[in-house]
């Protein structure tokens, strides 16, 4: 354990450490706390310049109600779900197959393929923008959820394949070999032996990709333009332009946009962090 555990220190040290941790946390989250408080403020409060104190009037319910009834926020939220869920399922499925192939079969060029997936995952989006936009337009998928979903599946497959391949490579070969000797078909080996073993990795990956896709803003700008398809990130950015001065509504909208990945993170914290820190301990 490093640094020295606080249990080994004096009582005053322990107390001041605990106090310091909570103060640091509040300072760290101060910008966010401010937004949270603002989402519960009234226009009167904002006009009177009460930006940082406790709201004199709690308008929490009214503000959020206004966001949902007077703006397309609900539609944006729904769009985000319609785009994100299939994209996660698609990317995770394709990459589990690909990762298994790269990890457990020996064939020429597999390292090259693996390297391509890794490299592709790091390229700047702008180098893909024009051709992907043209392709989407030519397929008649511009301004549709399918256009965005297809792109997200394809792009996330790079990271997912890296992730799944590194996980599967650690699984014991003996199980697979034994099944092969028994004459079990390759598909059944994948389905009944490999898949159950990778379940924890699937959960970690799915949570992570959900967050990546949900928070995407660039592709939502490039491949979509109408309110009917726009996901919440692009939606809230558009609303910011319209509501210049209504900070309480922009704040409430921001909180709504941030909530789904945050809830998912808290529900599946262990998986999320395991996924994100893959490779931080070895390599």
């Amino acid at each position: 354990m490093f640094p020295t555990p606080i249990e080994k220190r004096s009582l005053p040290f322990n107390i001041s450490y605990r106090v310091a941790v909570w103060i640091a946390l509040i300072l760290w989250l101060l910008p966010l706390i401010a937004v949270l408080l603002t989402s519960a403020r009234s226009t009167a409060d904002l006009n009177a310049g009460n930006y940082w104190g406790i709201p004199t009037q709690w308008m929490l319910v009214q503000n959020y109600e206004q966001v949902f009834t007077q703006t397309p926020m609900l539609r944006y939220l729904l769009n985000s779900i319609i785009i994100t869920v299939p994209a996660v399922i698609g990317a995770v499925s394709l990459s589990t197959l690909a990762g298994y192939s790269l990890a457990k079969f020996k064939f020429r060029g597999r390292m090259g393929l693996f390297a391509t997936f890794i490299a592709g995952n790091f390229v700047p989006f702008q180098i893909l923008m024009i051709p992907v936009r043209d392709l989407t337009i030519h397929m008649g998928l511009y301004d549709t959820a399918s256009g965005l979903i297809l792109f997200h599946i394809a792009f996330q497959t790079g990271f997912c394949t890296l992730f799944m391949r590194n996980f599967i490579v650690g699984l014991p070969d003996e199980l697979i070999e034994a099944a092969r000797v028994e004459g079990v078909s390759e598909w059944k080996i994948f389905r009944h032996i490999v898949l159950p073993l990778v379940r924890p990795a699937l959960a970690a990956l799915a949570v992570l990709i959900f967050t990546f896709v949900w928070n995407d803003y660039f592709w939502a700008l490039v491949l979509v333009q109408s309110d009917d398809v726009r996901p919440i990130t692009a939606g809230i950015a558009a609303l910011k332009g319209q509501w210049m001065a209504s900070w309480q509504l922009i704040s409430a909208g921001s909180i709504v946009a941030a909530l789904p990945p945050v809830m998912l993170f808290f529900a599946m914290q262990r998986h999320f962090i395991a996924g994100l820190t893959l490779g931080a301990t070895k390599g």
């Binding site: 197959l97 064939f107 997936f117 180098i127 923008m129 024009i130 051709p131 992907v132 790079g158």
Partner: peptide, 25 residues
């Protein structure tokens, strides 16, 4: 089998990532 397992990922990744890079350049 390894080719079949890889095919969907490789095709989609080529169409949306690899090929567009070449096209942009």
């Amino acid at each position: 089998m390894p080719i079949a397992f890889l095919a969907p990922a490789v095709i989609l990744f080529s169409v949306y990532v690899i090929f567009p890079i070449v096209q942009s350049v």
